[in-house]
Design a protein around this nucleic acid. Sequence first.
DNA 1: ATATACTTGACTATTTTAGTCAAGTATAGA
DNA 2: TCTATACTTGACTAAAATAGTCAAGTATAT
Lengths: 141, 141
Amino acid sequence: MKLTSKGRYAVMALADLAKFNSTNPVSLRDISLRQGISLDFLEQIFLQLKKHEIVISIRGTNGGYILNKEPVDIKIANILNAVDEEVKTVQCKKESKKSCNGKTAKCITHNLWDELQNHINDFFENKNLRDLIVNNPESRI
Amino acid sequence: MKLTSKGRYAVMALADLAKFNSTNPVSLRDISLRQGISLDFLEQIFLQLKKHEIVISIRGTNGGYILNKEPVDIKIANILNAVDEEVKTVQCKKESKKSCNGKTAKCITHNLWDELQNHINDFFENKNLRDLIVNNPESRI
DNA sequence: ATATACTTGACTATTTTAGTCAAGTATAGA
DNA sequence: TCTATACTTGACTAAAATAGTCAAGTATAT
């Protein structure tokens, strides 16, 4: 799980999409203008979101993207994994699993980082797009 | 709060120090050899740890470093803040605080990232050096 | 037809990371 | 006092990651 601007933009774009989702596809151009994200960068991001079946693209005039699932079924973890595919934490890579038993300073921090990683994962596993929208009473879903 | 190798090395080095803390100062050379961290890099790290009063340096032959407090009083958050001083999260910088009310996709993710940041901070605020050591029964404190 | 919109891959400036290098200063013990 | 050991400080840098840009398409609705 990496936490980058790319991931944040993906969540932003999908939150935007969830709000304007009702009937029509939403064009990246609109999202770009509303959220202030470069169109080219959005295309890169939505390519990944489409590959991971989070959105569906609709081509042609008045085309755009729509969500492939209900907002409640799209976990934030899914989104972040889609655009920043490699799960990379700062951790000791030299130890093999079996030799790493938490008995050296190296492996003590290894365990600490793993534990943090789990906390972060849980956090994003337990949040979905709908959670983000409903915290925002003025919005229309 | 940044999570880098530098921060992890700092925690590793202090865990090592806590284990060999009993009577004598521990030289960076020893830590370097035991933990496989470059001596030059350790010096950079310990300069910061000293400035933040986490360790005390003892010069001269058989000198080295000792902890400035009991392990239980050294929070992991203190360590990470000492070596990676800038608190930097991926977040929206364009909004002023007052205009950011969680009503746009931008600010929705802003809130999400802030919430995560708090989770991570809590995690490290509630762990201290002693916690790391006591999970390691074979070690001597 | 053709404008609109999505697709794909290559490319890159900037910043960050994870150190290295050099030239010191201070102190303990012989 | 001498000098080996250890800490101090600041400048420098190769490599990787980040955050995009650019170019040249292809597909489809109207």
